[in-house]
Amino acid sequence: MTTALWRRTLLSIGMIALALIIGVPLYYIVINTFKTQADMVSSPLGLPETWSFANWSSALGDMSIYQAFGNTLYVTVLAVLAQLLVGAMAAYAMIIARNRTTRILGSLLLVGFIIPPQSTMIPLYRTLVGFELVDSLNGLVIMYMGGAIFCFFLIQGYMRTLPYEVIEAARIDGAGTNQIFWRIVLPLIKPILVTVGVFQTMWVWNDFLLPTVFLSSPQKETIVLQVYSAVSEFTTDWPAFMTITVIALIPMVIFFVFTQRHIVSGLLAGSVKG
C-alpha cells in the first residue's frame, strides 16, 4: 500500500513538473497581457513591473469583440456538429458494409486531407461566389465541412475496435440501421467523438485562413480576425495581440476542461449494459 502511495506521489510530482515546462509558453502569453509594450520589450518573460489592465479594458471595451464572439460561436457549433455527424455516418456505413467498393471509397476520401488547403482556396472561393455564400457565416460553415473527412477517418479507426456483438445483437432484436446508429453506435463511440470534436472545435475556433479570405464585412468577423487587427506592416502590438488571443482561448480552455472527462468515460460498462 505504501509503495503504491509513493509511486503515485512520485508520478504526480513528475507529471506536474513536466507539464509546467510544457506550459511555459502559455505563461509567456498570459503574463504579457498584463504589460505595456514597453514593459514587454524590457523584460519579455519577467513579471510585470506594474500590473497593467489597459490591454484588457481596451479589448473588452470594444463592442465588436462581442459580436465577433457570437459569430465564432455560431460558426463553430454548427460546423463541428455537422462535421461530426457527417463523419460518423460515413464511418458507420463503411464499417457495416465492408466490401471492395467501400474500401476504395474510404481510401479515396482520405485524399481529402492530403490536399494542401492553399491549393483549393481560389477555386472554392469562386464556387462560393456563384452560390452567394461568400461573406456569409453559413458559407464559412460549409467550408469547414471539409473537416468531416478528418472526423470520418478518426471515427472509422475507432469503430474498428468496437465489439461487433453489440451491433449484431441489436440487429437480431430487429433494430434498423438508423436506430442502431443513434441509439447504440453514437453512445459507444463517445470518447472518440469528444476527442475529435474537441480538436475540430479548436481548429474552427482558431482558424485564420478561411475567415480572412471568405469574410469581408466587419460585422461578420470571427474572433481570430480581431486578434490580427493588432498586426501592421512593420511591427505588431504584441500585448494587444496576446490579450485578444487569451480572450479567444479562455472559452477553449473551459471547453476542454469540461469535455475531457468524457474522453475517459466508462465505455465498456456502458456497452455491456446496452
Binding site: A19, I22, I29, N206, F208, T245, L249, V257, Q260
Partner: peptide
C-alpha cells in the same frame, strides 16, 4: 489540459 494547450492557439 497543459499538455493539450499547445494544440490550441494559432
Amino acid at each position: 489540459s497543459l499538455w493539450f494547450f499547445p494544440a490550441v492557439p494559432s
